[in-house]
Amino acid sequence: MSKSSRLFEIIQILRAAEKPVRAQQMAQVLEVSERTIYRDIASLQAMQTPILGEAGVGYVMRKGYDLPPINLEVEEAEAIAVGLSLIARTGDPGLWRAAGRASRKLQAVAPGTRRLVTSSWGLDEISTVDLGHLRAAIREERKLAIRYVDGSGAATKRVIWPLVLIYYVDAVMIAAWCELRKGLRHFRLDRIEHLATQEADFKGAGAALLHEWEQTQKAQTVTTRALSID
């Protein structure tokens, strides 16, 4: 990795962090020595990058620091994000690490791409649900009314707060907050008989719910199909 790419990665790591990040942590992610991280931090600070902290304590990025925008349409950014996730299926660790770095760069200018996730399988068929319509609801934090049929054939009407789309070999799934169950649930799109966007939204609540999903369910969700699905 070139020095310029490494500096960019350090900025991305610090911008995404919720607490101080130690040089050792960044060194492990970027596969360099701690000494290299200390030199890079010094270089960034010399360029007036608002990084605060010191060796042995950790570093933080002052809020509000922005990078130049990438001129991509929303769906172009979403397509790139899904494509980068699919690189995990190649079995190439180096390529996967590079894809991770590219994803962090993309998320810096298109945060909504964080809500598109793939598993280690490929998708054979697309659900009859309009995925573009669904992705728009996720971006806009708009509630959805659905008629859902579970694995036993029982149908229920739900209002869900869509958070994340997950692409699997045999289905697309959506992670959402379910008002009926009052919790995070996963729904197979091929079991949704009807879907309608509501006037009501959940603006302001999506980020916290997404964080909860990432902390409690993401790892399990993207690595196995043996899920507890409504």
Rank of each mutant, 00 (worst) to 15 (best):
residue 111 P to R: 04
residue 121 W to E: 00
residue 191 R to T: 11
residue 216 T to Q: 11
residue 85 S to F: 01
residue 38 Y to H: 13
residue 2 S to H: 12
residue 121 W to Y: 05
residue 188 R to F: 14
residue 157 K to Y: 13
residue 135 R to M: 14
residue 31 E to D: 15
residue 229 I to W: 14
residue 212 E to Y: 06
residue 183 G to C: 07
residue 87 I to S: 00
residue 155 A to I: 09
residue 64 G to N: 09
residue 151 G to V: 03
residue 196 A to Y: 03
residue 130 D to Y: 08
residue 11 I to C: 06
residue 128 T to M: 09
residue 93 P to K: 13
residue 133 H to N: 10
residue 16 A to R: 04
residue 77 A to W: 04
residue 107 Q to R: 14
residue 45 Q to I: 00
residue 40 D to K: 02
residue 23 A to K: 00
residue 168 Y to H: 00
residue 44 L to V: 01
residue 154 A to S: 12
residue 113 T to M: 08
residue 11 I to A: 03
residue 40 D to N: 04
residue 141 E to C: 06
residue 189 L to V: 14
residue 80 I to G: 03
residue 228 S to R: 05
residue 77 A to G: 15
residue 223 T to A: 07
residue 77 A to Y: 09
residue 209 L to Y: 08
residue 67 L to Q: 06
residue 133 H to W: 08
residue 143 K to I: 06
residue 136 A to V: 04
residue 81 A to D: 01
residue 138 I to A: 02
residue 143 K to L: 15
residue 169 V to P: 00
residue 143 K to S: 07
residue 191 R to N: 12
residue 121 W to T: 01
residue 114 R to N: 04
residue 146 I to P: 14
residue 56 G to S: 07
residue 1 M to R: 14
residue 65 Y to L: 06
residue 73 E to I: 04
residue 177 W to L: 15
residue 164 V to L: 11
residue 50 P to V: 07
residue 8 F to V: 10
residue 193 E to L: 14
residue 110 A to M: 06
residue 216 T to M: 04
residue 164 V to S: 07
residue 119 S to C: 02
residue 77 A to H: 09
residue 19 K to E: 13
residue 119 S to R: 01
residue 75 E to F: 13
residue 111 P to F: 05
residue 186 H to P: 01
residue 105 K to I: 09
residue 207 A to R: 15
residue 9 E to V: 02
residue 58 G to L: 03
residue 145 A to N: 15
residue 162 P to T: 04
residue 81 A to Q: 05
residue 25 Q to H: 02
residue 91 G to L: 00
residue 100 G to I: 09
residue 1 M to T: 08
residue 37 I to L: 02
residue 140 E to T: 09
residue 214 E to G: 02
residue 96 W to E: 12
residue 22 R to A: 10
